[in-house]
């Protein structure tokens, strides 16, 4: 599904990613954990196609194709979805306009017939039900005046409507109270299936109690310094990131 090979990237003169290697197979859930400033968000933005980053080395293959050469919107239509850490507020456009345009852009790309307004409404209401989201969200302007929790739930609703093959969740748990965390996690879990992969980026182990990963990776200073199973997350929570860093330094030294 996704193969990241020696990915190096910088913003301006600052080298952020220093050689990331990661392989995600279909159906797998990978968690990427790491301290602030380790490059977690940069990695997610580069995968989704945000401008402003310079890839200095390495490559990313998505379903065998060169992901980095695809325009942002094509990545999305091909099935890559990024749930934003800070979803953008767009006053004046309702969620359903926005989602209908998005879903139809994907259908058109796949050579399928676009949905009519009526078809789309029933489709998206069904999706809202699956991920247990209030369909009232649909009539509101995109994230405008939403609480932190509502914004994250809206991201999950968009994910449900777009049915991606690879979903990257960037700190989707940040700023959520326990109830919102449960709703969001439920939304993610119902979407897990053998064809769909997840890259869950998080600072805390808390989310991983609800969305149980197959693999956990520790990102520090632009590199993956340790990989393991879900138990690695508990160890990190208990002992902090310092030991992993020291161990990595020892390995290198």
């Amino acid at each position: 599904m996704l193969e990241i090979k020696n990915l190096c990237a910088k913003i301006g003169d600052k080298q952020i990613l220093k050689g990331i290697n990661l392989t995600v197979k279909a159906g797998e859930v990978h968690a990427i954990m790491g301290p602030n400033g380790s490059g977690k968000s940069t990695l997610s933005y580069i995968l989704a196609g945000r401008e402003g980053y310079e890839v200095t080395d390495g490559q990313v293959l998505y379903e065998g194709k060169d992901l980095l050469s695809m325009p942002t919107e094509v990545r999305s239509r091909e099935g890559v979805f990024l749930a934003f850490q800070y979803p953008v507020e767009i006053h004046g456009v309702t969620n359903k306009y926005f989602l209908k345009a998005a879903v139809n852009a994907k259908l058109k790309h796949q050579g399928k017939t676009e949905m009519s307004a009526g078809q789309f409404l029933s489709f998206v209401k069904e999706k809202a039900k699956t991920v247990e989201m209030d369909e009232a969200l649909l009539s509101r302007q995109v994230n405008a005046g939403f609480s932190g929790g509502e914004k994250k739930r809206n991201e999950i609703l968009q994910m449900a409507a777009l049915e991606p093959k690879l979903a990257i969740l960037d700190e989707t748990d940040s700023g959520l109270d326990i109830d919102a965390l449960k709703i969001v996690s439920h939304g993610i879990n119902v979407m897990r299936n053998p064809q769909r992969s997840f890259l869950v980026i998080t600072h805390y182990q808390r989310l991983l109690d609800y969305v149980v990963p197959d693999f956990v990776h520790v990102l520090s200073d632009g590199r993956i310094i340790r990989s393991g199973g879900k138990e690695l997350a508990y160890q990190l929570e208990k002992e902090g990131y310092a030991w992993a860093k020291e161990e990595f330094a020892g390995l290198k030294g």
């Binding site: 945000r50 919107e73 239509r77 934003f84 767009i90 345009a101 777009l162």
Partner: peptide, 30 residues
């Protein structure tokens, strides 16, 4: 044009022109 908003719309599959039009529409809707 707000580049962050533009990226957000494109990351959901809207083409560049469509995303810009959506933001113009949004701007004048008030």
């Amino acid at each position: 044009m707000d580049l962050g908003a533009l990226f957000y719309l494109k990351s959901r599959g809207l083409g560049d022109k469509e995303a810009r039009e959506a933001l113009i529409y949004a701007f004048q809707s008030e």
